[in-house]
Simulated assay, not measured.
Amino acid sequence: MKQMLTLTEHSQLKALSDPLRAEMMMRLLERPYTGQQLSVYFNLSRAKVHYHLKELEKNQLIAIVKKEEKNGIIQKFYQSVARGFTPSAELLPHLEDINETSRQFLLQMAERTKSVILSAPEDAFKMNKASEDPSDWDYIGSMWQFSAKEEHFKDWIKKYFALMQEFSELTKQDLPNHPDSKIYYISTMAFQIDEPIMEELKSKKEEK
């Protein structure tokens, strides 16, 4: 699976902007599924799931990664072709569709994170000692709000991805079945909003 796929067709944007397909893509980012498995997961008819899978496959967003025979029937397993998607310069005029696709993916990420939190083990949220030092914590849960220039926000994004790449390289040898290894789920979202949510920035804005 590629890390990033550049979307070059308007039809790809339209395919991803559909809420149900966006939710399907979140599942197919995680692991391969058959149409039958997705039908059960979403409680939808196989015909409806098959239609949406074909739309995603036609737009080269998913691919068949393996086939298995069960009771004389060939089962096809689909998976996303990339972990992330970004529009090409040619698609920038279709701003409304780009915005809706991004919104749907962020919504699905938020829903997925919520379900992971609810199913996480009790040990995930343990507190071994009281401390204001983040390095003593076993998990992170925080919300931030800044008034910033766009260039500063983009600089932060660049550093964030560099940090995640550094962490990825650092943990490559930490195999999941190692007795000292734990599996961590990291979900991050950051985007522009119209009005301050937190009182601190509201007050600063009113003072001006």
Rank of each mutant, 00 (worst) to 15 (best):
Q79T: 05
F85V: 06
L170P: 00
P93V: 06
Q36S: 09
E55L: 15
N59A: 05
L163H: 12
S17F: 00
I98E: 02
V40R: 08
S147Q: 07
S203A: 14
Y185D: 01
E23D: 12
M189A: 14
E55A: 06
K54H: 13
E207R: 05
E206S: 03
D180H: 07
K67D: 07
L170G: 00
F77Y: 15
S102Y: 07
Q108N: 15
L28A: 02
A162V: 07
V81K: 02
A130E: 11
F77L: 07
M127H: 09
G35A: 13
Q60F: 08
I62G: 01
T34E: 08
R31V: 05
H94P: 00
A22M: 02
T8R: 14
H50Q: 12
W156Q: 08
K114G: 01
K149C: 03
I140N: 05
Q12S: 09
P121R: 15
Q104G: 01
I117A: 03
E30Y: 04
L29S: 01
A63N: 11
A190L: 13
V65Y: 02
Q75M: 13
A82I: 10
Y185V: 02
S45L: 08
Y41G: 00
Y41L: 11
S181M: 07
Q79I: 05
M26K: 11
G72E: 08
M26P: 00
K159R: 15
Q36V: 06
M24D: 02
P134N: 08
R103I: 09
K54I: 06
E23N: 08
K172F: 03
S115N: 11
F153K: 10
E100V: 09
N128P: 00
G84H: 05
R21A: 04
L38P: 00
M26C: 08
I140R: 03
M143L: 09
I140M: 10
N71I: 03
G84M: 06
F191C: 10
E30T: 11
S147I: 02
E111R: 14
V81M: 00
L95D: 12
F191I: 06
A82K: 06
K208R: 11
M109Y: 03
S187F: 10
A130D: 08
S115P: 01
L28C: 03
N99I: 09
I74T: 15
L106D: 04
Y78I: 08
F167S: 09
S45C: 07
P19T: 01
G72K: 07
E169M: 12
D194N: 12
R103Y: 13
L106T: 13
I193W: 04
G141C: 06
L5R: 12
K114H: 11
M198V: 04
Y41S: 03
K66H: 07
A162R: 12
I98Y: 02
D155E: 15
